[in-house]
Simulated scan of single mutants.
Amino acid sequence: MILKVGDKVPVFSAKDVRGNVFESQSIIGEKPVVIYFYPKDDTAICTAQACGFRDSYQDFQDLGAEVIGISSDGQQSHQEFSTKHNLPFILLSDEDQKIKNQFGISSRFFGILSARVTFVVDKDGVVQMVFNSIFGKNHIIKALEKVKELTK
Rank of each mutant, 00 (worst) to 15 (best):
N20D: 15
L150N: 01
G6S: 10
R108S: 11
S106H: 05
F103N: 01
D59Y: 08
K31D: 02
I27Q: 06
T43F: 14
S26T: 15
Q58S: 12
Y38A: 10
Y36Q: 10
G104E: 05
Q76R: 07
S133H: 06
F103A: 04
V121T: 01
S107C: 09
S107V: 08
V126T: 13
A48C: 08
G64P: 05
F37Y: 10
V9A: 10
H85F: 09
K40S: 10
S133C: 02
V5S: 08
V127C: 08
D62Y: 06
Y38L: 10
T47Q: 13
G52A: 09
S24F: 09
P10I: 11
A143I: 04
D42G: 10
L92P: 13
S71H: 06
I70H: 03
A48W: 08
D7A: 12
S106V: 09
I27C: 03
I134A: 06
E145S: 05
S26D: 15
S93Q: 06
F119R: 03
Q75R: 05
Q97S: 07
F110R: 11
T47D: 12
S107A: 08
F81L: 03
A14R: 09
N20A: 12
K98F: 09
G6Y: 01
C51N: 13
Q76H: 06
D41S: 12
G125V: 08
Q75W: 00
F119K: 00
V21P: 11
G52S: 11
L3W: 10
E95N: 10
P32E: 06
V121F: 01
D55M: 08
K15A: 12
S13C: 14
D59C: 13
L87V: 04
Q79L: 09
Q25S: 15
C46S: 15
G29Q: 13
Q102Y: 09
Y38F: 15
G6V: 01
H78F: 03
L150F: 01
G104C: 02
K146P: 00
V121Y: 02
N138Y: 00
P88S: 08
F110E: 12
F22G: 13
Q61L: 09
L92A: 07
S26M: 11
G64E: 03
F37L: 09
D96N: 15
R54C: 01
Y38R: 11
A65Q: 04
A48T: 13
E66P: 02
F53Y: 15
F60S: 08
H78D: 07
F12H: 15
D96I: 06
R54A: 07
I134C: 00
Q97A: 05
S77E: 07
N101Q: 14
